[in-house]
Design a protein around this nucleic acid. Structure first.
Length: 225
DNA sequence: GCGACAG
DNA sequence: ATCTTGTCGC
């Protein structure tokens, strides 16, 4: 794992160097376990509560959850999210005993200016298939998908597809799915769809978010941090 | 120069 | 990301 204590400019260079390691390819493995990761923190604070949840696929039954507290050393800069969030998530990852077949990250995968969103970066660092599931677009254009659950439309950057806009629930804003690493567009969608259980956000990321938010509130009660 | 801009 | 009450719509 490379050095994370760098400047934004160096981070951009780091992303360019990582491009050659990125593998957007057909995913064949049978999925039995899927993981979700996310972090939570108080405004103006650099203390992050990271968490990872492992769920049985496609039941979405949680079989393991781990959290960790860490200090963030990188600011939030659109396009450089991984440098801020991966370090804390890595701490939680160390505690995970059950290796999932695929990890879902809260953010984009290759749907990024340099094709190096947090899902792609995480996949390369930990050598595991990943999928990016973001709530908002970072780059690219798209036509709004139809209003039925499961409807999709391609997310495009010029003439190249970089992700898929997915309607997870009627009358609710869609989410943006993109391959992270060792993954392809179709598999990403085929894996995410069964993870939808009545909410806008697919279970892996949703459960991870609930976990870290709970950890933050619990550890922030009655003291500073 | 202007608008956009994951979490 | 987090803060924060009520309110509109399926």
């Amino acid at each position: 794992m490379h050095n994370w204590e760098i400047s934004p400019k160096q981070a951009v260079q780091e992303q360019k160097g990582l491009q050659e390691k990125l593998r957007i390819q057909s995913f064949q493995q049978e999925v039995k376990l899927v993981g979700g990761a996310d972090i939570s923190y108080n405004r103006f604070s650099s203390t992050a509560y990271a968490g990872i949840v492992i769920l049985r696929f496609p039941e979405m039954e949680i079989i393991e959850k781990q959290t960790a507290v860490a200090t963030m050393h990188f600011p939030y800069v659109p396009g450089l999210l991984s440098f801020r969030e991966i370090p804390p998530i890595a701490e939680a990852w160390k505690k995970i005993k059950t290796r999932p077949d695929v990890m879902v990250l809260d953010g984009h995968g290759m749907a990024h200016p340099r094709r190096m969103g947090i899902a792609s970066h995480f996949g390369i660092v930990f050598q595991i298939p990943t999928i990016g599931c973001a709530k908002k677009v970072l780059t690219g254009s798209f036509d709004m998908p139809e209003n039925q659950k499961g409807d999709t439309s391609p997310l495009m950057d010029k003439e190249e597809q970089i992700g898929t806009v997915l309607r997870t629930k009627p009358n609710v804003k869609p989410v943006f799915i993109s391959p992270g690493h060792l993954m392809d567009f179709k598999s990403a969608i085929d894996i995410i769809k069964p993870c939808i259980k009545g909410y806008r956000i697919p279970e892996p990321t949703r459960q991870a978010h609930l976990l870290v938010n709970e950890a933050r509130i619990k550890n922030t009660k009655g003291h500073t941090s």
